[in-house]
Amino acid sequence: MKIHLDQDRCVASGQCVLAAPDVFDQREEDGIAILLDAEPSAETAPDVRQAETVCPALAIRLEE
Rank of each mutant, 00 (worst) to 15 (best):
E39H: 04
E43S: 15
P46W: 10
E63A: 08
Q15Y: 10
M1K: 12
C16N: 08
E28R: 03
D25I: 03
C55A: 05
G14H: 03
R61M: 11
V11Y: 01
D25M: 03
Q15I: 00
L36Y: 05
K2W: 06
A19V: 11
L62R: 04
V48I: 14
A42W: 03
C55H: 02
E63W: 05
A42R: 10
L35H: 03
Q15V: 07
C10K: 01
E52S: 04
C16H: 05
E43H: 13
V11W: 03
H4F: 11
P21W: 07
E28M: 05
I32E: 01
Q15E: 15
D22V: 00
D25F: 01
I34F: 01
V23R: 02
A20V: 10
R49L: 13
P40A: 06
Q7M: 12
T44W: 08
L18Y: 06
R9F: 04
V23Q: 05
C55R: 02
V17N: 07
P21D: 08
D37C: 04
R61Q: 15
P56E: 07
D6A: 07
P56H: 09
I34T: 14
A57M: 09
P46R: 12
P40V: 07
P56I: 11
L36K: 14
Q26V: 11
T53H: 12
C10N: 04
A42V: 13
A45C: 00
T44Y: 10
A57Q: 06
P21V: 06
A12P: 03
L36M: 09
R61K: 15
A38I: 01
R49M: 11
A42P: 05
I34W: 00
T44H: 12
D30M: 01
D37E: 13
M1N: 10
M1R: 13
A59I: 08
G14I: 02
E64A: 12
D25S: 15
C55M: 03
H4Q: 13
A42K: 12
R49A: 14
